[in-house]
Simulated assay, not measured.
Amino acid sequence: MTQAATFLATAASSDDSSFHPPSITDFFPPAIFFEGTPFEMTRITFAQLLATLAVVVIFWLGTRRMTMVPGRFQSIVEMGLDFVRVNIAHDLLGRKDGTRFLPILTTMFFMILFMNLTGVIPGINIAGTGVIAVPLLLAVVAYVTFIYAGIKKSPKNFFKNSLFPSGVPPALYIIVTPLELLSTFIIRPVTLTLRLLMNMIVGHLMLVLFFSATQFFIVTLGGWWTVLGAGTLAFGFAFTLFEILVAFLQAYVFTILTAVYIQLAVAEEH
């Protein structure tokens, strides 16, 4: 293995037939359409538009002619909608508040899910959520939503109860209040953004590493190196399945945390 590592390091430093591992530059791709214009589109923006179009088309086709006895496609769409409605919105917020915030939670879940899934689509191979703009925008939406929910529920006491929780001795507020400010109003949007962003970045880098190594071993080196290529190919396919699971889990975690923050904001003590 040491000889193999040495060989790969030497090959990677050569100019011809070299191994090019993935890097953070993958997330700054060149323009593919309308270069130099306000409508410049890279592979990532194309993935984002494709995911958005897919969400719109799927739900339009699945709901435009709904029947009492749903067909297979309508059933799949309804199952997706019911998953968010029952397992996230109503389960955490109750029927009244869950129905009230259901549109934004549903949009958030499926937007993240479809943009995450572009990372495993051949030819695109990068998640639409792999640049900070999308996770940050979604985190800001979640942030504004739970603050709005809290103010709407208790206009006078929301910030007071958030920063000065009941049951704490007044002398400890000098410690508790800065911590509550940090955890509630600063750390929440930051962690929402970074959790989604980092998972998509790491997933992309791992997939590219496996499949680029496969191409290098089998096509460039050949010979007995194809054995290692078969191994990296198998790992690549296994990690692709794992990334599909991660795409779903990250959409679920982001949406359920948003619902939890809303639930905390509309709690009776506020």
Rank of each mutant, 00 (worst) to 15 (best):
L92C: 06
V140R: 07
V77S: 09
I174R: 14
G80E: 08
I121W: 10
N116I: 09
P122D: 06
L92H: 09
M68I: 14
A127R: 02
N161K: 12
L81V: 10
L93D: 00
A127L: 09
Y143L: 14
V144F: 12
A139H: 02
G71L: 07
I121C: 06
V140F: 14
I104F: 04
G123N: 11
M115A: 07
M68G: 15
M68P: 11
V77Y: 02
G119R: 00
L105I: 07
A133E: 13
I124P: 00
R95P: 03
V131A: 06
L172P: 04
I175P: 02
P135Q: 04
P103F: 09
G71C: 08
I124V: 15
R95V: 15
K156P: 05
L93G: 05
P122H: 06
A127Q: 11
P122I: 06
P155L: 11
G123F: 09
I104Q: 01
M115E: 07
M79H: 10
N87Q: 12
L117P: 11
S162I: 01
D82M: 11
G98A: 04
M108N: 11
G98H: 00
L117N: 02
D97H: 09
I132Y: 09
I112F: 06
K156H: 13
I88K: 01
I147A: 01
Q74W: 03
P122C: 06
A139F: 03
F101A: 05
